[in-house]
């Protein structure tokens, strides 16, 4: 009885961390798990910061003339394509009207439908579209029109700005 008890005590005494560690075999996973956890958190954080957005490129031509930075076509005999104007205007109720080609004061959705029917030819990428919004047009609608042009394969999009530098333009509250 006493010998059995002594044996049991010695087993209990040896059940400590170092003893268990010395009995452990196989690769030590702890440092790997530490680092994998940190990397996981790192990628989750960066994804939250930068994952959900992209960019629409727009030239900023000034009103009245294309200025000195107009690019010449490579072929000197080519007929220069005339930039297409997209006139945007906001009604008193906040609705946005778009005039483009044959569309006269149409809605933004009509414009998107019209521009999506644009024939995709090799010159589509050479087309230039100048968006001319009035100050009261919502910025989100300008971006929608710009995105519709990009989706139709027109990549040379400009948003015109007035040349004046003085007082602020009138803003509807």
């Amino acid at each position: 009885m006493s010998a059995r008890r002594r044996n049991r005590e010695s087993v209990l005494r040896r059940r400590d961390a170092l003893h268990n560690y010395s009995l452990h075999f196989g690769p030590n996973m702890t440092p790997m798990v530490d680092i994998v956890m940190v990397i996981l958190i790192f990628f989750m954080a960066t994804a939250a910061f930068m994952g959900s957005e992209w960019f629409l490129r727009a030239a900023i031509p000034f009103e009245g003339g294309r200025g000195a930075d107009a690019k010449k076509p490579n072929d000197p005999l080519a007929i220069p394509l005339k930039p297409l104007d997209v006139l945007m205007d906001a009604g008193p109720d906040g609705r946005t009207f778009v005039s483009f080609l044959e569309l006269r004061r149409a809605s933004v959705d009509d414009f998107i439908a019209r521009v999506s029917q644009f024939p995709r030819t090799e010159t589509t990428g050479e087309l230039e579209v100048i968006i001319k919004p009035t100050p009261s047009v919502p910025y989100a609608d300008v971006v929608r029109v710009h995105a519709a042009c990009d989706a139709a394969g027109i990549y040379k999009v400009g948003i015109t700005v007035a040349r004046r530098t003085d007082a602020a333009a009138p803003i509807n509250p």
């Binding site: 992209w54 960019f55 900023i60 100050p135 300008v142 971006v143 700005v161 007035a162 602020a168 509807n172």
Partner: peptide
């Protein structure tokens, strides 16, 4: 509204930027 963005675009244009990228 576009009128609130326009002065910013104008400043960029007058500083010599040819184009901007709108974040969406």
């Amino acid at each position: 509204q576009f009128g609130q963005i326009e002065p910013v675009l104008r400043a960029c244009g007058q500083a010599g930027a040819k184009s901007v990228r709108f974040a969406t």
